[in-house]
């Protein structure tokens, strides 16, 4: 469990706080989607979840973040790295090897995973992400979606409790973006891995996450399940957050008392809603 109390952070050489007064508890097994305008503090927040802030990035740090009861300010970031794995936004730069297999081996070797265990782990994560055929490929020859899978696989090999991803689908087309979300959902359901993902594609968040968090100027402007959005649709618009068209539609229908069910998050849901209205 990650517990964030009164978290605030001001980057060195900056006058404004990137994060301010953040309070949140991320339970084991949760799937949290974070969205917000650029400069809202999303990336900074992900850095606070595994000790990169305050350990590796300079600035003024307020409040406390604890991972399984351990304070991130009091232990080396490496101690949390195996518990909370992070896939950074710049996918090319975070790779450390030129071949897929070596990329996955890197963390395993460094953290001293016994050598007799390594082979089995590499096989397993490659299989879990369906990229067995990429094992000997040069990373530079992979597509964006494949690179994301490799990055997730190399985190997964360390058997983390939490995976944090910063806009992994930013440069992917809709098909590959959805695939990443499907993979994460499977890991979340079957292995109980907690997933925290920063994402601009609100449609995907609505469809897959358990909780949604909207950041605005370093504050939490909304936190709740995707269905809770219905009461905050106006807030979302003011904050510049897009909501899926079908959600907007259902919110309108509910407001006008044409429909009395729940807010819809997918086209399938909306179809059922319209059929009910048509009788």
């Amino acid at each position: 469990m990650i517990s964030v109390k009164d978290l605030g952070f001001v980057y060195q050489n900056s006058k404004t706080a990137a994060l301010d007064g953040i309070n949140i508890e991320i339970e084991d097994g949760d799937f949290v989607g974070i969205t917000g305008t650029s400069g809202a503090g999303k990336t900074t927040f992900t850095f606070a979840l595994n000790g990169i802030i305050p350990q590796k990035i300079k600035g003024d740090f307020y409040g406390a973040v604890t991972i399984n009861g351990k304070d991130t300010a009091e232990h080396h970031a490496e101690e949390f790295a195996r518990t909370v794995g992070e896939v950074f936004q710049d996918i090319d730069s975070q790779m450390v090897a030129s071949v897929v297999e070596d990329e996955i081996l890197f963390g395993l070797e460094n953290f001293g995973v016994p050598h007799e265990e390594i082979e089995e782990r590499v096989d397993r994560v490659l299989k879990e992400l369906g990229i067995e055929d990429l094992r000997d490929r040069e990373i530079s020859s992979l597509s964006g979606g494949q690179k994301q899978k490799v990055a997730i696989a190399s985190m997964l090999a360390l058997e983390p409790e939490v995976i944090v991803l910063d806009e992994p689908t930013g440069e992917l087309d809709p098909e590959s973006s959805r695939e990443i979300f499907r993979i994460l959902t499977r890991l979340n359901r079957e292995k109980g891995i907690t997933v925290v993902i920063v994402e601009q594609k609100i449609m995907l968040l609505c469809e897959y996450v358990k909780h949604m968090m909207v950041l605005d100027k370093g504050h939490i402007a909304f936190y709740g399940t995707p269905r809770d959005m219905v009461s905050s649709i106006e807030t979302f618009k003011e904050l510049g957050i897009n909501v899926p068209r079908v959600t907007e539609l259902s919110a309108g229908l509910i407001r006008e008392k044409i429909y009395d069910g729940e807010v819809t998050l997918t086209v399938d849901d909306a179809e059922k809603m319209v059929r009910r209205i048509l009788g």
Binding site: A81, R82, F88, D90, Q94, V96, F106, N110
Partner: peptide, 10 residues
């Protein structure tokens, strides 16, 4: 990013 990523992976 490269340095941070390597450090976070031990």
């Amino acid at each position: 990013v490269s340095a941070m990523s390597a450090e976070m992976r031990g």
